[in-house]
Computed example of a mutant assay.
Amino acid sequence: MLLRRMLIMLGVVALVVLALAAYKGFSIYQQVQKFSVPPPAISVDAERAVEQPWQSRLPAIGSLKAFQGVDLTVEVGGTVRDVLFRSGEQVTQNQPLIQMDNDVERANLATAEAALGLARVEFERGRSLVNRQSISKSEFDRLSAELQQANASVAQLNALLAKKRILAPFAGTIGIRQVDVGDYLSSGTIIATLQDVSKLYVDFFLPEQAVPKLAVDERIRLSVAAYPGEQFEGAIVAINPKVEDATRNVQVRAILENQDARLLPGMFANLEVLLPGETQHVVVPETAITYTLYGNSVYVIEEKQGEDQQPIKDDKGQPQLVVERRFVETGERRDGLVVVLKGLKAGEQVVTAGQLKLDNGAHVAIAEDSASANSQPDVE
């Protein structure tokens, strides 16, 4: 009886062990089946590399300056008698701006003119007398010197009177006046600013490596914060013949027309020097480039091939796509595009979004929006 019970117990234990082994084996089988199924394709955006004309440009930042601009000042002291301009108006060359009190100078001029008249009369009388040898030659020379001195005094007072009347040195826009009638102005006092803004200079700096590429009359294109989205064009008029010791940069000056006086001196400008000539370059969207310490790279999308060098297709009959990480040499970047100098050919398809999920050889699928955009014909 005891033996029979032991055999039954051993049989039950064996059945339990077999059941557990079968369950474990089935679980392992499921795990193996799960890992043997290929992972789903990673959805990415993609665009094709294209070859197009590319004009090289030199970016810089600069400051706008008036074609002519001065702060108007007085040379001699005096009291303002009349202000002959309105703030912000357009003035012409030699237009009177300020009249200072000149009564004392006029009185002095009248005295000097009277002395000049007397000196002229005495000189004429002396000339007739010296011809008759009635006076000595030295006396006649003294009369001649007095006449010259009287002429110089009148010219000096006329010049002083002219400085009491401030004229515009050139045509332009005058700024906000800084003086009023009755103000006493000492020498050097600023009246207002005068700016000729019909044309503007833009001064900027470029590194010394750019000097061989620069030339007078090369075109520039600039933009300012006051008019977002608008661009203004000008031309280089001068290149400084000296490189700055501290920065190793060279100063460049360009000029541009300022229609309607929209641009003002002192504005900050972002600009580009448009270098002559265009060359064909392969370009891709800037988002396609992965920048690392080891170099710049792109993920190129290719069809997966089998051992017979034929494309492997999925269950929908479409070729399976994989990515290859390829290191490239990049050039200029502009307007969301970057030039690829080496490592990529025109027509190759590159990933533009989703690179963080990828590794070399990863299975990918192009997003529908990206695929439809790539299928559209190029528009010239």
Rank of each mutant, 00 (worst) to 15 (best):
A152P: 12
A152L: 10
S153F: 06
S153D: 09
S153M: 03
S153W: 00
V154R: 11
V154P: 04
V154I: 11
A155N: 11
Q156E: 09
Q156P: 01
L157T: 04
L157N: 11
L157M: 12
L157F: 14
N158C: 07
A159H: 10
A159V: 04
A159E: 13
A159Q: 14
A162M: 04
K164P: 07
K164L: 05
R165K: 11
I166M: 03
I166R: 00
L167Q: 13
L167E: 10
A168M: 05
A168Y: 05
A168C: 02
P169V: 05
P169K: 05
F170T: 11
F170Y: 14
A171R: 07
T173V: 06
I174L: 15
G175H: 05
G175D: 06
G175M: 00
I176Y: 10
Q178D: 07
V179N: 13
V179F: 00
V179S: 11
V179I: 15
D180Q: 12
V181H: 14
G182C: 13
G182N: 11
G182R: 10
G182V: 15
D183Q: 05
D183C: 07
D183K: 12
D183H: 14
Y184P: 06
Y184C: 08
Y184A: 13
L185M: 12
L185D: 12
L185H: 08
S186A: 07
G188H: 06
G188A: 04
G188C: 05
G188V: 03
T189Y: 01
I190H: 08
I190P: 11
I190D: 00
I190C: 03
I191F: 03
I191H: 03
I191L: 15
A192W: 00
A192N: 09
A192K: 09
T193R: 15
L194G: 08
Q195V: 06
D196H: 06
V197L: 10
K199L: 09
L200T: 07
Y201C: 01
Y201I: 01
Y201V: 08
Y201T: 01
V202P: 03
V202R: 07
D203W: 02
F204R: 10
F205P: 00
F205I: 02
L206E: 05
L206W: 01
P207R: 02
Q209M: 10
Q209K: 14
A210C: 01
A210D: 14
V211W: 01
V211N: 08
P212F: 09
P212C: 05
K213C: 02
L214Q: 07
L214C: 10
A215G: 15
A215E: 03
A215H: 09
V216Y: 07
D217Q: 15
E218S: 09
R219H: 04
I220C: 09
I220L: 09
R221L: 05
R221C: 10
S223A: 10
S223G: 07
S223C: 01
V224P: 00
A225H: 11
A226F: 06
A226I: 12
Y227M: 06
Y227L: 14
E230T: 11
E230M: 13
Q231F: 13
Q231A: 09
F232N: 08
E233Y: 15
E233P: 04
E233V: 14
I236C: 02
I236T: 03
V237A: 00
